[in-house]
Design a protein around this nucleic acid. Sequence first.
DNA 1: TGTACATCAGTGAACGCGCGTTCACTGATGTAC
DNA 2: TGTACATCAGTGAACGCGCGTTCACTGATGTAC
Lengths: 199, 199
Amino acid sequence: MARYGKEHKQATRQRIIDVAGGRLKRDGIHGSGIATLMADAGLTNGAFYAHFESKEDLVASAVAEQLREQRESFSAQPPGRAGLEQIVRAYLSVAHRDNPEGGCPSAALLDEITRSTDATKRAYTDGLLVVIDDVAARLASDDPKWARMKTLSVFALMVGTLQVSRALSDRKLADEVLEQGIQNALALLDADHPSMRRR
Amino acid sequence: MARYGKEHKQATRQRIIDVAGGRLKRDGIHGSGIATLMADAGLTNGAFYAHFESKEDLVASAVAEQLREQRESFSAQPPGRAGLEQIVRAYLSVAHRDNPEGGCPSAALLDEITRSTDATKRAYTDGLLVVIDDVAARLASDDPKWARMKTLSVFALMVGTLQVSRALSDRKLADEVLEQGIQNALALLDADHPSMRRR
DNA sequence: TGTACATCAGTGAACGCGCGTTCACTGATGTAC
DNA sequence: TGTACATCAGTGAACGCGCGTTCACTGATGTAC
């Protein structure tokens, strides 16, 4: 192949990471083989190890990238509380549930991340906290540690709700779970004054 | 081997299902191979297909069994609201988080169940609803459909919270997530009158 | 009561397959002369 | 300006391995005579 400038190899690496992000979320880590993944990126399997040390290395990179993209997606919403509600409603939407490939990496991969290497778990933790702190800023609290915890716990609620909705084979029930999840998330966010931390 | 009564083969099948339950929750579906699974049950790989049609058949059976056991575990708690709180605190405990093998099948397997066959998803849905309705009876509501939805959505919160706590590589933060999850779950359960369904 | 036989849960080797990973090689290019 | 060479991103075949699944076989037993 052609001898390109140094930006070309980086672009290829990024393309692999992007393709992997979607595949991992749709088919899971074990369900995404390197050969088919590279084919999706328009390359052959052998080229993989010119870009990554191992499959787990790619997984960690892809998870980090997915969280970066999720952060941007959340940031695109209006500022403050209004945006918060939009984030919740978009997250717990039928469209998001039915499109894991383009959706939240936590909802699609949490179980498998838990069973992954420490490096992957660290990449996940670091990336998630950036997302969370970014959203937590909307709470405009003078207690940033409390805002982080509040946001993180409501996020966990949303992740679990989306997953349960995806797993239920009864579609009507699955839709109702999303709706109830929105109510629950908003209710918890409404109780956002430190004085209300315990009921 | 010996020719036993008909109860013997059933006992063997049950043993495989029980062993599989723990292995699946610890290592995931893809991480649990049939050969090692059968070895754990004291058998060789070939015997597997005398008991199950396929691996997915076992997975569906094991998921159903795990949910049956979870129902029993929840039922063992004191009746009414007091038991509810104990269920929440046990579920969102450090002990449960650090022992997926003996814990909740939803928290350990939801992502993979979502990607499984319809039969497995149906087994999951059916088994989960029995668990949920059983717990929902503690709310003693005159609106059983509302009680189911309330319970199911709080359960989803707990599942997501446990998963996030498991994935975080920062243990202190992971512990705090559990604690906040307990507060959130109890707060939502406290708002259990139909008149309070919308804030 | 003693013996031959049918039963059938379990054995263990083998199957094709896709996995993650390695590596000798290719070939288009920028650079040196 | 023209030619030889070094570079290196990407190729594609091959590796050992464990996967899910199949199947001819084993052998201890309850039953029939």
